[in-house]
């Protein structure tokens, strides 16, 4: 598993080969991906909590670790499910597990940038923020690059189709959130209705 996780460094520079290997020839990729994700969450919390005062968030006491982690994991989960759901309809070749693994491996640049940024926050003043932002942006761009090539490789798509699929996946995520909110509020109404009825009955003269 650890060896497979370390394979992330190869994927970083050889996305097409790397993701191909990952899909067909590597073992325990799911566990490895989850290990990487766990590290990512840990690093994210650490950089929230331990960044220097001037680079961190002002109000550390209201920092919510669960919220912090879920802001990371939930979108990833939504992406995986929706991307799988759409790609199965449009002859994608990846399983849901493979999409998950690919997504997490694509986030490795972020994982690598975080400790660097954390250290930088203790060395730089706010006026040197552009350097900080540069690394941040590079990491994100690299992630996007890996995401696209990774998805393309494991789904066996062309680049244009991958980009179109990404677009539709985002639409799907938006729709899911929308439906989720509707469901949530409907149930809320339903529950309050039932509880009101119960109260009415209990106090009926």
């Amino acid at each position: 598993m650890i060896t497979t996780a370390r394979f992330a460094f190869y994927v970083l520079f050889h996305p097409i080969d790397g993701f191909w290997e990952l899909k067909y020839h590597k073992e325990k990729t799911f566990g490895a991906a989850n290990l990487i994700l766990a590290l990512l969450c840990l690093m994210n919390v650490a950089s929230m909590q331990f960044a220097s005062f001037h680079y961190g968030i002002l109000d550390r006491e209201s920092n919510n670790i669960l919220l912090n982690i879920s802001s990371f994991v939930l979108p990833l989960l939504a992406w995986t499910v929706l991307n799988w759901a759409l790609s199965t309809l449009l002859d994608g070749k990846a399983t849901m597990k493979q999409i998950w693994v690919q997504s997490v491996y694509s986030l490795v640049p972020l994982l690598l940038s975080m400790p660097v940024l954390l250290v930088m926050s203790y060395v730089m003043t706010l006026s040197e923020y552009p350097f900080y932002a540069l690394i941040q942006t590079l990491a994100v761009l690299w992630c996007v690059f890996l995401f696209l090539f990774g998805n393309m490789t494991i789904q066996d798509y062309t680049m244009s189709k991958t980009i179109a699929m990404a677009f539709f996946t985002f639409l799907g995520i938006a729709a899911t959130i929308f439906i989720g909110i509707i469901l949530f509020s409907t149930f809320q109404q339903l529950i309050s209705f039932v509880s009101t009825v119960i109260t009415e009955i209990r106090y009926m003269p």
């Binding site: 220097s52 005062f53 001037h54 002002l58 060395v123 003043t125 706010l126 006026s127």
Partner: peptide
């Protein structure tokens, strides 16, 4: 909670 000033002081210290 003076972030900018903190950064300035830190810069001088560094």
């Amino acid at each position: 909670y003076a972030r900018g000033s903190y950064s300035r002081a830190f810069g001088e210290l560094r």
